[in-house]
Computed example of a mutant assay.
Amino acid sequence: MNISQVMTPDVKVVSPTDSLQSAALLMRENDFGLLPVEKEDRLIGMLTDRDITIRAVAEGLSPMETEVQQVMTSEVEYIFDDYPVEEAARYMSELQVRRLPVVDRDHRLVGIVSLGDLALSEQQSAGAALNSISQPGESGLI
């Protein structure tokens, strides 16, 4: 089974010039804590609720005046939509992440795959990935 068969295909995205406030509203309206950042139909970053809290609010930046690109994570790990589900579980475990953007071979965003998506298709793979992600790493962080 491939990632394209289990991923969430309809992904909300933000622009790098959107305000943090508008991104946070989109997160709240859709009940998620992660937004891909796209520019000219290309994935250029990821914004999490944690980015907003730690990199902006804690630093005293105004959510209305601060742009997404100022606090987003620019180095984005992703997986191709034609990879097997088992590969996604292994990669997520290796990276210790719970979600990955999914791109096609033209590097265009086509979805997001989460551990929940994997759990619906491959209980053992998702369970192993979650177990690995939930273990403290060298830094002691989960």
Rank of each mutant, 00 (worst) to 15 (best):
M1D: 12
Q5A: 15
Q5D: 15
V6D: 00
D10E: 15
V11P: 13
V11L: 09
V11W: 08
K12H: 14
S15G: 00
S15T: 14
S22R: 14
A23E: 09
A24Q: 04
A24P: 08
L25W: 07
L26E: 14
M27G: 03
M27H: 08
E29F: 08
D31A: 14
F32G: 01
L34G: 01
L35V: 05
P36W: 06
P36E: 03
V37N: 07
K39D: 12
E40W: 01
R42T: 08
L43V: 09
T48S: 15
T48G: 12
T48M: 09
D49A: 05
R50A: 02
R50Y: 08
D51Q: 02
I52V: 11
I54T: 13
V57C: 08
V57P: 04
L61V: 00
S62A: 02
P63H: 01
P63R: 02
E65V: 05
T66R: 07
E67F: 09
E67M: 15
T73F: 02
E77C: 04
Y78K: 12
Y78Q: 04
I79D: 11
F80G: 08
D81N: 14
D81Y: 09
V85C: 03
V85W: 02
E86P: 06
A88S: 01
A88C: 03
A89N: 11
Y91M: 10
Y91I: 10
S93D: 10
E94L: 12
R98H: 03
R98D: 00
R98C: 02
R98G: 10
R99L: 08
R99C: 04
P101R: 00
V102R: 04
V103G: 00
V103F: 01
D104V: 04
R105A: 10
R105H: 13
D106Y: 12
D106A: 13
V110Y: 07
G111F: 03
V113F: 07
V113T: 10
S114K: 07
L115G: 05
D117E: 01
A119Q: 09
A119S: 12
L120Y: 07
Q124Y: 10
S125Q: 12
A129T: 06
A129K: 09
L130M: 12
I133Y: 11
S134I: 06
Q135D: 11
Q135V: 06
P136E: 13
P136N: 05
G137Q: 08
E138I: 14
G140A: 02
